[in-house]
Design a protein around this nucleic acid. Structure first.
Length: 104
DNA sequence: TCCTTGACGGAGA
DNA sequence: ATCTCCGCCAAGG
């Protein structure tokens, strides 16, 4: 079976596997989950997470090395805060993939 | 059904 | 380095 639920489940597991202090891109997670081309779906999946979720959703950023929320928005600030807590430098919404990208 | 909307990404310009 | 454009996919109208 390979329902939407199943895909989400697998995506959750890969996101949960990202080590603290590291980041991964939507496309990277999609590929790791065996769903190349589903970058957008990964975003849609994280979007549905409950506010109290323990999943490290904030460790997922876009391929441009940026937080995928409007600068200054509440969501943007939450994510920047969480990343900073782990020692990840967020400069003008940008994160250095070269320095923090997770390579399984 | 058809159309629009994104936590996306790669190719061009 | 930036900005469009276009293809991708599931959700929600």
């Amino acid at each position: 079976m390979n329902s939407t639920e199943e895909k989400r489940r697998i995506i959750h597991q890969w996101v949960a596997a990202i080590p603290a202090g590291n980041v991964a891109t939507y496309g990277q997670i999609a590929k790791l989950a065996g769903l190349p081309g589903y970058a957008r779906f990964v975003g849609a999946t994280l979007r549905q997470l409950p506010a109290n979720s323990t999943l490290p959703w904030y460790r997922v950023i876009n391929a441009s090395g940026r937080i995928s929320f409007p600068r200054g928005s509440p969501a943007y600030l939450r994510q920047k805060e969480r990343l900073s807590t782990e020692g990840i430098v967020v400069d003008q919404g940008r994160i250095s993939l070269r320095d923090y990208r997770w390579n399984p």
